[in-house]
């Protein structure tokens, strides 16, 4: 499902210097399982997820998702690939403030064009009902609690029936109980849709719900060199 080969990511610092963030020799995750990637803050978890999602491109190396080399795609093609194949739940949810919960989910389908237009509303309603927000369809993000926003984000991420779901620190803004409920729900939904899950976290409670755990320190050679990320 996910293959990274000789992937490096660094950011320009000015004066021609670059700050290395990620250096992965080889990293591969097979499909159909729930994976967690763990490590303290600043170890490159979000950068890794962005690379896998095609939001970032590596400075060097190749990123393949579901057999497609993301580094060979043009930006618009990468956007389409992401929309069609990858669901992403951001740490800060990133719901669109001007739109209702229903519209936030529908918008994901709007850009991917995987689901026929006439099915968008029904699909979004069904997903929101599935995450327990059937009564909050017309509410805007500001009118929802953190836990509810998180669930809208999950519904949005699954709207296009992706083969891969990425979650970045899903428990960061939630209390333990809510985080646990969301995790269970995601687990169920991933199982139903045969979705591979990769969740970045440093929350030990979350780790119990996944099949495999990958340590950032084990794959990121930048950390091994003792560089501060």
């Amino acid at each position: 499902m996910i293959e990274l080969a000789e992937v490096q990511k660094s950011y320009p610092m000015g004066g021609g210097e670059r700050l290395p963030v990620l250096d992965i020799h080889a990293f591969a995750l097979p499909a159909g399982k729930r994976w967690a990637i763990v490590g303290p803050s600043g170890t490159g978890k979000t950068t890794l997820l962005h690379l896998v999602a095609g939001i970032l491109t590596p400075t060097a190396g190749n990123v393949r998702v579901a057999g497609t080399d993301l580094t060979s795609l043009r930006p618009a093609e990468r956007d389409q690939f992401r929309a069609r194949n990858i669901g992403y739940v951001f740490q800060s949810f990133n719901l669109l403030a001007a739109f209702t919960a229903l519209e936030n989910v529908m918008l994901a389908m709007q850009f991917s064009k995987v689901i026929p237009q006439h099915q968008h509303r029904a699909r979004a309603t069904e997903l929101l009902q599935r995450v327990g927000l059937g009564h909050r369809l017309v509410h805007k993000p500001a009118q929802l609690s953190n836990g509810e926003q998180q669930r809208v984000a999950v519904a949005r991420a699954l709207a296009n029936r992706p083969c891969l779901l990425l979650m970045d620190e899903p428990s960061a803004h939630l209390d333990t109980e809510t985080a646990q409920r969301v995790t269970e729900l995601v687990g169920e939904l991933c199982a139903e849709g045969e979705v591979t899950l990769l969740v970045a976290t440093h929350d030990p409670h979350l780790l119990e719900s996944v099949d495999h755990v990958v340590e950032m320190q084990a794959i990121n050679r930048v950390l091994a060199r003792g560089a501060v990320v």
Binding site: A83, N94, A108
Partner: peptide, 14 residues
């Protein structure tokens, strides 16, 4: 942030 989210949802730069 919203524009970036739209991009992340699959909206192309165009």
């Amino acid at each position: 942030r919203e524009m970036a989210t739209l991009r992340a949802l699959g909206a192309s730069p165009g």
